[in-house]
Design a binder for these strands. Structure first.
Length: 878
DNA sequence: GTGTTCACG
DNA sequence: ACGTACGTGAACACG
């Protein structure tokens, strides 16, 4: 295995960190932000690279700047601010305390030290990573030397990596040519003068052609641009000097001290003390909780023997908790089972010899009936586990989601980092894009170690997460809703929904016919052919060629969104065709063609229901998304006729009637709204009657429509602007509607204000069942962001509580169908709607169950009502 | 990979 | 003056 060296450009990274990290001081007034940023970058690099050697290079006289000796070019760079200067010696102390090697040498620039060490080490056969904030170092990049440039972007550090090819890709010149490029174009930051009149563009062009300054001058006659040629000829000296300045020495008198540079445990007592003094709480906890990987690895075992496996599973059955990871291949058959216990002992059981798949599956099934299982994404494992009872299961990913539902994805690595302070290797770092099962075949050892760490982390994280769930009041939410729901979703996914492929095809063909007609019609009316699906081209045609009114609206050009086009449809007949074309191509590509590829055995489509995506607690559906099948427009709605029950069955579809508004009535306790729900079902008409002071019977359709829009707006976190957009009225009118609404339902105003106040105070809002949603936007200094935060604070408790309730209903309905041994199955959830594939004979029973369990899912101040329909396709049942 | 558009609740 | 309704996912164009 190739040895790996990481070299760090000390001053440059410190500098980067200083400007990238917000100002920090400890209680004695010392600035610490650069050190903090430096350490974060350092740890990130170490975790990613897992190098064998590490060295940090500094310039001797901080702050010396590259080539400062050439006084004539000095003066363009600002002096180092005192706030940064004072951090330099402390930084060196920290590194020294951690036992990290540093190099500095009188008369040598850090660049030259780094360049030299990098090249020499590469020659010795090492893989080198050179970390710097300075792009000058790019000239050092080769296929064996990776130059890494960290960027602090919005609080997160991302690192750009450059091998030779990356430099070429970015700058169109090789790393060596990069020196010549700099020599010509100069660099004010580095006091490299360059050649006057030659900027980045010209320099790149010249170097791409001539590859070096010297060769350029050999062919100086060939230069066509007069001004450039003249300047080059007149400034030959400057060019040569610049090249010399730009060149990083790679033959300096400095050697890598392998002994000092060797990676060891950095988490020392001394370092701990300094970090404590600097008050880096975040990093300290890392030191405290950090157990060296070596120490953990000692507890890893591989099991191949039948007797060992027997013992292992017997032990697992009795343990307080058993971490579980299943290695599955593409066909979802078992390749290995990995178990870990609270004491850290971890066992990797490969499928081999007597340990056949059937044997392992049998052991697993038995374990799942009695053992206490901790794992990640448990729904993925239910092919092998009992699903009757989740009381003794714990999914750390679900727990992490509940504790912070705002993340884009949830990995064991992140959970281990955040909740255990344990850093684990990312999969891609170890195995690239290969699937784990594929990597397993090639590099078994590594995969076993990788998986063992994951399972180890699962079982260690579980108690920490459980405690946090209790502290945040979400333990019951976890135990009684999210965990049981995993089984329901698993069954729904497995069951799938049947479609009629012929009908789907016919639907698509009908669309295709009309699309072709429209296409020709649009080309004719527009006077040319273009890609109607390209907003860019469409915008140009409409607003430039046809000169239709309507300016820019988006960052990239003209907006061609439906609401913009609708306003234009009076101007040009082609616009109506475009809108129809849009609608039809959407239906065809997303639904007719899009769904077809998912049709599997028995003509069924198996969507995936995700439980950790939404910020509010809703479920989401992917591959395909069955929660956005057209409904509002008749033509689109027709596609629901394609969804059919299996033979001998029919669909029963039940949806909550205005669940969010009812939740609002309950949570706000508003007397008027509660009373309204007690007297009549048509809540929008009642609202209109009250808000517009009109007798109930005399409420016009328009008034009702407006009241309905206000009701929706309230649920979304009302704003006068939003409402005015929706109703196409002035902002003033919208404001009046809202004021009238709040006058009518004062409890709602108080509730919404209370939600925002709570969020401002605590940083989060909660649902009736304790689900939390953080609202970080509320502390933003940006008005837009803050307003968004306010709307979120108003909407999330409502949307989230509704989501909680339907989850409860799903669990109860699912359980009842099972308890009563019915063949009917819950197959879909669409936020406020459940679809049951119902056996003919069970029709009445299913209706009864849906009514009881959906209405009974929560006891609110107002009744939960449902609308229930049956039919022989989804269109009919809705 | 990002932005735009549009389907749903 | 700012430029938004809340929550999603998929297709497509484009850099």
């Amino acid at each position: 295995m190739m040895e790996k060296l990481v070299l760090i450009d000390g001053h440059s990274i410190l500098n980067r960190a200083f400007y990238g990290v917000p100002d920090l001081t400890n209680s004695s007034g010392l600035h610490t932000n650069a050190i903090y940023g430096f350490l974060n970058i350092l740890f990130k690099i170490l975790e990613e690279e897992k190098p064998d050697y590490l060295t940090v290079a500094f310039d001797v006289h901080a702050p010396t700047f590259r080539h400062e000796i050439y006084k004539e070019y000095k003066g363009t760079r600002k002096p180092m601010p005192e706030e940064l200067r004072e951090q330099v010696p402390v930084m060196k102390e920290v590194l020294s305390a951690m036992g990290i090697a540093t190099v500095e040498k009188t008369g040598l620039e850090a660049d030259d030290i780094l360049g030299t060490l990098a090249k020499k080490s590469e020659k010795q056969g090492m893989a080198v990573s050179l970390v710097s904030g300075d792009r000058d170092l790019l000239q050092i990049a080769t296929d064996g030397i990776k130059v890494r440039i960290p960027k602090t972007k919005g609080g997160k550090t991302e690192i750009e990596d450059y091998y030779t090819s990356d430099v070429v890709a970015r700058y169109q010149v090789t790393p060596t040519e990069f020196i010549d490029l700099k020599a010509l174009m100069g660099d004010t930051a580095d006091n490299i003068p360059g050649v006057p009149k030659v900027g980045e563009k010209t320099a790149t062009e010249l170097i791409r052609t001539y590859h070096s300054v010297e060769n350029l001058y050999d062919h100086i006659d060939e230069i066509t641009k007069k001004a450039v040629k003249e300047s080059l000829i007149n400034n030959r000296k400057l060019a040569d000097l610049s090249k010399d300045l730009a060149t990083i020495r790679t033959d300096s008198d400095v050697e890598l001290d392998k002994d000092k540079a060797r990676i060891h445990n950095f988490y020392t007592e001394d370092a701990y003390k300094i970090l404590k003094k600097l008050e880096f709480k975040n990093l300290l906890s890392r030191f405290e909780k950090r157990v060296s990987h070596d120490e953990i690895t000692e507890k890893f075992h591989t099991v191949t023997d039948l007797a060992e496996a027997e013992n292992l599973f017997e032990k697992a059955g009795k343990e307080e908790a058993t971490g579980l990871y299943l290695l599955l291949d593409e066909k979802r058959s078992l390749l290995a089972v990995c178990l870990s216990f609270p004491d850290g002992e971890t066992f990797f059981c490969r499928r081999e010899g007597f340990l056949t798949e059937d044997y392992l599956a049998d052991k697993l099934r038995k374990l799942s009936e009695t053992g206490k299982i901790v794992c990640a994404n448990i729904k993925e494992y239910y092919d092998f586990l009992q699903t009757d009872n989740t009381d003794h299961y714990f999914d750390i990913i679900l727990a992490a989601y509940l504790l912070n539902p705002l993340k884009n994805d949830y990995t064991i690595q992140d959970v281990a980092n955040e909740h255990l302070g344990l850093m684990l290797q990312e999969k891609t770092e170890m195995f690239g894009k290969k699937s784990l099962s594929a990597a397993y075949a090639e590099m078994e050892e590594e995969v076993i170690s990788y998986i063992s760490f994951l399972v180890y982390a699962c079982v260690k994280a579980a108690p920490v997460l459980k405690k946090k769930l209790e502290e945040t009041g979400m333990d019951r939410l976890m135990k009684e809703i999210e965990m049981p729901l995993t089984c329901v979703l698993y069954d729904m996914e497995k069951e799938g929904i049947r479609v009629n492929p012929e009908k789907l095809k016919a639907y698509g063909d009908t669309l295709a016919g009309r699309i072709k007609e429209l296409e020709q019609e649009i080309y004719r009316k527009a006077g040319c052919e273009f890609n109607i699906n390209s907003p860019k081209q469409l915008g140009e045609i409409l607003f430039e060629r046809m000169k239709l009114p309507g300016g820019k609206k988006t960052k990239t050009g003209y907006s061609t969104a439906a609401d913009v086009l609708e306003k234009l449809s009076g101007e040009a007949p082609v616009v109506a065709d475009i809108l129809e074309y849009r609608g039809l191509t959407k239906l065809k590509s997303t639904y007719a063609d899009g769904l077809a590829v998912y049709i599997g055995e028995e003509d069924r489509i198996h969507s995936t229901f995700n439980q950790t995506i939404t910020a509010t607690g809703r479920i989401s559906s992917t591959e395909p998304n069955l929660q956005n099948i057209p409904m509002r427009m008749e033509l689109g709605r027709q596609i629901r006729k394609v969804f059919i029950p299996r033979d001998g069955y029919l669909f029963t579809d039940a949806d909550y009637s205005q669940i969010e508004l009812r939740v609002l009535a309950h949570m706000s306790g508003d007397k008027q709204l509660i009373e309204a729900y007690r007297t009549d079902a048509d809540i929008h008409r009642i609202t209109a009657s009250k808000v517009f002071h009109t007798p109930f019977e005399e409420v016009t359709d328009l008034q009702r429509r407006n009241a309905k829009a206000v009701n929706f707006g309230i649920v979304y976190g009302i704003s006068s602007f939003g409402l005015s957009q929706d109703l196409s009225i002035s902002r003033k009118e919208a404001t009046e509607y809202i004021e009238q609404y709040f006058a009518t339902y004062p409890g709602i105003k108080a509730f919404l204000d209370g939600a925002v106040a709570h969020a401002k105070e605590n940083g989060y809002v909660t649902t009736m069942y304790g689900r939390r949603r953080p609202v970080p936007e509320l502390s933003s200094s940006n008005f837009m962001q803050r307003s968004f935060g306010e709307r979120v604070a108003m909407n999330s408790p409502i949307q989230g509580t509704a989501a909680d309730i339907i989850k409860i209903a799903m669990i109860r309905v699912h359980q009842r169908l099972k308890d009563e041994k019915l063949s009917s199955k819950l197959i879909l959830q669409v936020h406020d709607e459940l679809l049951i594939e119902t056996k003919e004979e069970e029709k009445d029973k299913v209706r009864e169950i849906l009514e009881e369990e959906m209405k009974g899912a929560a006891k609110l101040a107002v009744e939960l009502e449902i609308d229930l329909h049956t039919g022989y396709d989804w269109y009919e049942a809705k």
